[in-house]
C-alpha cells in the first residue's frame, strides 16, 4: 500500500554522477538501511525523495503519489518526514517549539486564528509536541532553548520534529553520528520503537555497522551511485563485493 518505490533514478551534478540507475523499494513497516562510503550517493537519494534535488531520470512513487512532481514542502503531506545529518534545529526557539515546527501541516489556518484568540488551542498544540517528547523520554526539556543543549538532545529533537508530523515514512540521515555507545544503543531502541509502536516505516542512512545490522530488516549497499547489494543483513554482510568495497575496511579497523 504505502511502499516507497524508487525506479531507475539518475542524478547528475554537472558532470559528477551521484546516482546512476538506482532502483529499490521500501515496504511498509520495515526498517530499511542504506549504507555506503562517503560520496556513494546516500544523502543525494534522500534529497531526491525529499524534493531538494531533482533527478534527471527515473521516478519515485510513494503509495499513489509521484514524489518528483511535488515541491519540497509538499512531501510531508504525502507522509514522509526526515532528519538531517548535520542537525538543523532553530537555536532561539524552545525545544517544544522546535518540535511543533514539524507539526506545521497538521495545524490549519482556522486553528491558528483560534490559537490567537484562546489558550485552549494553544494547549492542544502543545500536547502534540509533549506526546512525542514523552515517547522519546526527554519531557523535562521542552521549555529550554535549543541553543546550548547537548548534542544528544539536539538529535532527539530532530527525530521528534520528524515524528510529530505523523508520517508514514521517516527518513533518518545518520541518527547515530557523533554519539557514544550508550547513546547509539538508545537510538537503536528508539528506531525499533518507532516502527513497532507507531507503525512508521523507517529508511535510515547510517555508518555504524552494529546499529545497522542489529535493527534493519533489509540493507542496501550503495557504491559510487550504484546499488552494490540488497537484502537481509546477513546476506549483505557476506556479499563478496560488499566485503571488498566497504565492510572489509571497517572490519579490519
Amino acid at each position: 500500500m504505502a511502499d516507497l518505490c524508487i525506479n531507475n533514478i539518475r542524478m547528475q551534478f554537472s558532470g559528477v554522477v551521484a546516482l546512476d540507475d538506482v532502483s529499490l523499494s521500501v515496504k511498509e513497516s520495515e526498517i530499511f538501511s542504506l549504507i555506503g562510503s562517503n560520496g556513494s550517493g546516500k544523502s543525494t537519494l534522500f534529497n531526491c525523495i525529499n524534493g531538494f534535488n531533482r533527478p534527471q531520470k527515473g521516478s519515485i512513487l510513494f503509495g499513489n503519489d509521484d514524489l518528483l512532481k511535488k515541491k519540497p514542502h509538499e512531501i510531508i503531506r504525502c507522509g514522509i518526514s526526515r532528519t538531517f545529518q548535520n542537525v538543523q534545529n532553530i537555536p532561539f526557539m524552545t525545544v517544544l517549539d522546535n518540535i511543533l515546527l514539524g507539526a506545521h501541516h497538521r495545524i490549519d489556518p482556522e486553528s491558528t486564528v483560534k490559537r490567537w484568540l484562546s489558550q485552549k488551542q494553544r494547549a492542544a498544540e502543545e500536547v502534540m509536541g509533549l506526546e512525542i517528547l514523552d515517547f522519546l523520554g526527554i519531557v523535562n526539556y521542552e521549555q529550554k532553548y535549543m541553543a546550548g543543549q547537548p548534542y544528544g538532545i539536539q538529535k532527539l529533537t530532530e527525530i521528534a520534529r520528524a515524528l510529530v508530523g505523523k508520517p508514514k515514512l521517516i527518513l533518518m540521515d545518520e541518527p547515530a553520528a557523533g554519539m557514544n555507545d550508550q547513546e547509539t544503543y538508545e537510538i537503536a531502541k528508539i528506531i525499533s520503537e518507532i516502527r513497532d509502536e507507531l507503525g512508521i516505516t523507517v529508511l535510515v542512512v547510517e555508518h555504524d555497522m552494529s546499529l545497522v545490522m542489529s535493527i534493519s530488516d533489509r540493507v542496501c549497499v550503495l557504491d559510487s551511485g550504484e546499488v552494490l547489494a540488497l537484502g537481509k543483513p546477513e546476506q549483505v554482510k557476506t556479499h563478496p563485493d560488499v566485503i571488498r568495497a566497504f565492510l572489509g575496511d571497517s572490519a579490519d579497523a
Partner: peptide
C-alpha cells in the same frame, strides 16, 4: 503560533523548514 515558528525556521534553516512542510 505556527506562523512565527515557520518564520524562524526560514531564518535558521530553510531545509528544516521545507522538510517540515
Amino acid at each position: 503560533s505556527k506562523i512565527g515558528r515557520a518564520f524562524m525556521a526560514i531564518r535558521d534553516s530553510e531545509q528544516a523548514a521545507e522538510a517540515s512542510g
